[in-house]
Design a protein around this nucleic acid. Structure first.
Lengths: 167, 167
DNA sequence: GACATATCTGTAACCGATTACATAAATAGC
DNA sequence: GCTATTTATGTAATCGGTTACAGATATGTC
């Protein structure tokens, strides 16, 4: 493990999270390559959500996946280009388009189902070995929801000012 | 919390790690802005390592920080351009350059020291509130070191094939 | 009906990492 | 000394997110 003890912790934590994320994404990518499918890691959450059969909009997916609509929009473009999904205007709301899997997408969904199941199992095992990483991340997110990093640091800095004034 | 239950877990985990990382980076960035210094989040690990006073090379820093030499190289360029560090040829090895803080860098280091300390304290608090996120991340990294995601998924897929053959 | 505000989607630019590759220098082996 | 291999650094492209902004459409208020 590299030496990070003296790093301002928030940066070290952020970097560590990113590198772990990158690592998982890279390793997942090698699996799609082994399956001989030009599947991209960023497609997975959107593709998987549409596998359920519902027609969903970009914003629906963004809400459901917890990412920005931009992230979903870019993914939609790529999935459509790959022929895996199609989009059609929403009958009721001219702003919206609804996305569904194409026949090709459904075929790929079936082909990759074992891989997706295995990814899930592997994640469950990893989560357990790490000591419930998912719960820990949820608590970290909740802690930041309660009081953002900026607020915490500002409070600490102000406490330091107050201590100085009182000395 | 967005609905991720049905997502192939490894992608969900990777995405979650990334979004948390992005969030921490963004929030840290607002703090530098509040300090009225054009400091960039990606500079921090390298800048902080050089604050110790040692002259270090790109590769030294990469090893120490656990990132690729490219990441450090790009950061070195930016820090040098900002006038915060300087680089000089290593007397003994023509391939290497050694990096040190400039006077301006030292001055900024002193100016931002309270902010860096506060970031550290905030990280310690967040880590505790999350239930030792750092230890959990370390176990997750160690689990992946022992057996990569690819290996785990491949093993699961092969077990599934074996079960099918035996049925 | 007109206007202001909100929502949906798409594009551009950015962020902090990576891999691939190229060039220069050092090292090892003969 | 020569050659092959390794190491150090830098550049380009890529990845998977983000914010900012623009245009189109829907909604709410008067």
């Amino acid at each position: 493990m590299p030496e990070e003890r003296h790093d301002p912790g928030a940066a070290a934590l952020g970097g560590r999270l990113r590198r772990l994320s990158d690592r998982i994404d890279r390793e997942a990518k090698t699996l799609y390559e082994a399956y001989d499918t030009p599947f991209e890691q960023r497609w997975l959450p959107t593709f998987n959500a549409l596998r359920g059969g519902d027609a969903l909009s970009v914003q629906d997916l963004a809400d459901r996946l917890g990412v920005s609509h931009v992230s979903v929009s870019v993914t939609r473009t790529a999935l459509e280009k790959a022929g895996l999904i199609q989009s059609a205007p929403d009958g009721k709301d001219g702003r919206r388009r609804v996305l569904t899997l194409t026949d090709q997408g459904k075929a790929l969904s079936q082909q990759l189902a074992p891989l997706f199941d295995a990814l899930n199992e592997a994640a469950i095992a990893l989560n357990a070995e790490a000591g419930d990483a998912i719960a820990t991340l949820a608590r970290l997110e909740a802690a930041l929801d309660r009081e953002s990093l900026s607020q915490r640091v500002t409070a600490i800095l102000q406490a330091g000012e107050t201590e100085k004034d009182q000395d």
